[in-house]
Protein backbone atom coordinates (compact mmCIF):
# COMPACT_ATOMS: atom_id res chain seq x y z
CA UNK A 1 0.00 0.00 0.00
CA UNK A 2 1.27 3.49 -0.85
CA UNK A 3 -0.17 6.81 0.30
CA UNK A 4 0.49 9.79 -1.95
CA UNK A 5 0.89 13.21 -0.32
CA UNK A 6 -1.75 15.85 -0.91
CA UNK A 7 0.59 17.54 -3.39
CA UNK A 8 1.21 14.28 -5.26
CA UNK A 9 -2.55 13.64 -5.17
CA UNK A 10 -3.49 17.00 -6.65
CA UNK A 11 -0.90 18.03 -9.25
CA UNK A 12 -0.67 16.96 -12.89
CA UNK A 13 -1.54 13.51 -14.18
CA UNK A 14 -1.35 10.10 -12.56
CA UNK A 15 -0.33 7.57 -15.20
CA UNK A 16 -1.15 3.87 -14.95
CA UNK A 17 0.48 1.73 -17.61
CA UNK A 18 0.74 -1.98 -18.25
CA UNK A 19 4.31 -3.23 -18.44
CA UNK A 20 3.44 -4.91 -21.72
CA UNK A 21 0.42 -4.23 -23.92
CA UNK A 22 -2.38 -5.58 -21.79
CA UNK A 23 -5.58 -7.24 -22.77
CA UNK A 24 -8.65 -5.25 -21.71
CA UNK A 25 -6.85 -2.89 -19.34
CA UNK A 26 -9.43 -0.55 -17.87
CA UNK A 27 -10.64 1.13 -14.75
CA UNK A 28 -13.91 1.56 -12.91
CA UNK A 29 -14.53 4.80 -11.07
CA UNK A 30 -16.89 6.41 -8.60
CA UNK A 31 -17.01 10.20 -8.48
CA UNK A 32 -17.68 12.18 -5.32
CA UNK A 33 -21.15 12.95 -6.67
CA UNK A 34 -21.93 9.23 -6.98
CA UNK A 35 -21.61 8.82 -10.78
CA UNK A 36 -19.93 5.56 -11.68
CA UNK A 37 -18.81 3.78 -14.86
CA UNK A 38 -15.74 2.33 -16.55
CA UNK A 39 -13.04 3.56 -18.92
CA UNK A 40 -11.50 0.94 -21.19
CA UNK A 41 -9.88 1.54 -24.58
CA UNK A 42 -10.60 -1.96 -25.89
CA UNK A 43 -14.27 -1.51 -24.97
CA UNK A 44 -14.39 1.76 -26.88
CA UNK A 45 -14.89 3.90 -23.78
CA UNK A 46 -11.88 6.17 -23.86
CA UNK A 47 -12.76 8.94 -21.43
CA UNK A 48 -14.68 9.85 -18.31
CA UNK A 49 -16.86 11.79 -18.45
CA UNK A 50 -17.60 10.53 -21.95
CA UNK A 51 -18.34 13.99 -23.26
CA UNK A 52 -16.62 17.31 -22.63
CA UNK A 53 -13.25 18.80 -23.40
CA UNK A 54 -11.65 18.18 -20.05
CA UNK A 55 -11.84 14.46 -19.22
CA UNK A 56 -10.83 13.26 -15.78
CA UNK A 57 -9.73 9.83 -17.00
CA UNK A 58 -8.38 9.05 -20.45
CA UNK A 59 -7.54 5.62 -21.90
CA UNK A 60 -4.97 5.10 -24.64
CA UNK A 61 -4.27 1.46 -25.59
CA UNK A 62 -2.36 0.11 -22.56
CA UNK A 63 -2.21 3.36 -20.59
CA UNK A 64 -4.70 5.32 -18.48
CA UNK A 65 -4.18 8.84 -17.18
CA UNK A 66 -6.07 10.50 -14.33
CA UNK A 67 -6.23 14.30 -14.19
CA UNK A 68 -5.40 15.08 -10.57
CA UNK A 69 -6.46 18.69 -11.02
CA UNK A 70 -9.94 17.19 -10.68
CA UNK A 71 -9.03 14.87 -7.80
CA UNK A 72 -11.53 16.46 -5.42
CA UNK A 73 -14.28 15.03 -7.65
CA UNK A 74 -12.82 11.53 -7.43
CA UNK A 75 -13.90 9.03 -4.75
CA UNK A 76 -12.30 5.73 -5.82
CA UNK A 77 -10.97 3.69 -8.72
CA UNK A 78 -9.99 0.14 -9.54
CA UNK A 79 -7.71 -0.88 -12.40
CA UNK A 80 -8.37 -4.24 -14.01
CA UNK A 81 -7.42 -6.38 -16.98
CA UNK A 82 -6.50 -9.88 -18.02
CA UNK A 83 -3.58 -11.05 -15.91
CA UNK A 84 -0.25 -12.01 -17.40
CA UNK A 85 0.79 -8.53 -18.42
CA UNK A 86 3.79 -8.53 -16.07
CA UNK A 87 3.32 -5.43 -13.95
CA UNK A 88 1.27 -2.31 -13.67
CA UNK A 89 3.40 0.82 -13.40
CA UNK A 90 1.96 3.88 -11.66
CA UNK A 91 3.84 7.15 -12.20
CA UNK A 92 3.13 10.38 -10.37
CA UNK A 93 3.54 13.80 -11.98
CA UNK A 94 6.79 14.27 -10.05
CA UNK A 95 8.20 11.02 -11.43
CA UNK A 96 7.71 8.70 -8.46
CA UNK A 97 7.24 5.20 -9.85
CA UNK A 98 5.27 2.43 -8.19
CA UNK A 99 5.09 -1.06 -9.63
CA UNK A 100 2.12 -3.23 -8.77
CA UNK A 101 2.47 -6.95 -9.44
CA UNK A 102 0.09 -8.37 -11.97
CA UNK A 103 -0.70 -11.95 -11.12
CA UNK A 104 -3.64 -14.25 -11.50
CA UNK A 105 -5.14 -16.60 -14.05
CA UNK A 106 -4.61 -15.83 -17.73
CA UNK A 107 -8.35 -15.91 -18.24
CA UNK A 108 -11.01 -13.72 -16.70
CA UNK A 109 -10.75 -10.22 -15.31
CA UNK A 110 -8.41 -9.49 -12.40
CA UNK A 111 -8.43 -6.30 -10.36
CA UNK A 112 -4.79 -5.28 -9.97
CA UNK A 113 -4.92 -2.02 -8.08
CA UNK A 114 -7.38 0.10 -6.12
CA UNK A 115 -7.12 3.83 -5.47
CA UNK A 116 -9.12 5.50 -2.69
CA UNK A 117 -9.30 9.24 -2.14
CA UNK A 118 -9.04 9.59 1.64
CA UNK A 119 -9.52 13.22 2.55
CA UNK A 120 -7.37 14.43 -0.33
CA UNK A 121 -4.68 11.75 -0.13
CA UNK A 122 -4.75 8.97 -2.72
CA UNK A 123 -4.22 5.54 -1.20
CA UNK A 124 -2.97 2.96 -3.70
CA UNK A 125 -3.28 -0.72 -2.86
CA UNK A 126 -2.19 -3.77 -4.86
CA UNK A 127 -5.09 -6.22 -4.83
CA UNK A 128 -4.93 -10.00 -4.38
CA UNK A 129 -5.09 -11.99 -7.62
CA UNK A 130 -8.68 -13.16 -7.80
CA UNK A 131 -10.11 -13.43 -11.30
CA UNK A 132 -13.75 -12.74 -12.07
CA UNK A 133 -15.56 -14.07 -15.11
CA UNK A 134 -16.56 -10.64 -16.43
CA UNK A 135 -15.86 -6.96 -15.96
CA UNK A 136 -19.24 -6.62 -14.29
CA UNK A 137 -18.41 -9.39 -11.79
CA UNK A 138 -15.07 -7.76 -10.99
CA UNK A 139 -16.70 -4.37 -10.43
CA UNK A 140 -19.47 -5.86 -8.30
CA UNK A 141 -16.89 -7.62 -6.13
CA UNK A 142 -15.36 -4.22 -5.29
CA UNK A 143 -18.66 -2.55 -4.55
CA UNK A 144 -19.04 -0.65 -7.83
CA UNK A 145 -22.75 -1.34 -7.77
CA UNK A 146 -24.04 1.88 -9.31
CA UNK A 147 -23.02 1.02 -12.85
CA UNK A 148 -25.84 0.18 -15.23
CA UNK A 149 -24.70 -2.65 -17.49
CA UNK A 150 -25.67 -3.31 -21.09
CA UNK A 151 -24.06 -6.74 -20.91
CA UNK A 152 -21.50 -8.50 -18.73
CA UNK A 153 -18.59 -6.36 -19.93
CA UNK A 154 -20.03 -3.06 -21.13
CA UNK A 155 -21.99 -0.39 -19.31
CA UNK A 156 -24.95 1.42 -20.72
CA UNK A 157 -23.73 4.39 -22.73
Amino acid sequence: MVILSRVQSGVGLLTVEAGRPAARLGCAYVLAGGQSSIVCHSAGIVSAPRTGRNPMILARHHKLTVDLGQSRRLARLIFYGVAGVGSLVVTTFGGARIEAPVAGPNAGITVFLSVYNVDGELVLRAEPPNAAATVRNACDAYGFDRISWRDEDNPVA
Partner: peptide
Protein backbone atom coordinates in the same frame (compact mmCIF):
# COMPACT_ATOMS: atom_id res chain seq x y z
CA UNK B 1 8.02 35.06 2.35
CA UNK B 2 4.67 33.83 1.08
CA UNK B 3 4.76 33.37 -2.67
CA UNK B 4 1.50 33.25 -4.62
CA UNK B 5 1.57 31.48 -7.96
CA UNK B 6 -0.67 30.40 -10.79
CA UNK B 7 -0.19 27.37 -12.99
CA UNK B 8 -1.97 25.42 -15.67
CA UNK B 9 -2.53 21.91 -14.46
CA UNK B 10 -1.37 19.37 -17.00
CA UNK B 11 -4.65 17.75 -17.95
CA UNK B 12 -6.07 15.15 -20.33
CA UNK B 13 -7.43 17.89 -22.57
CA UNK B 14 -5.77 20.06 -25.18
Amino acid sequence: RLVVMLYLNESNGL
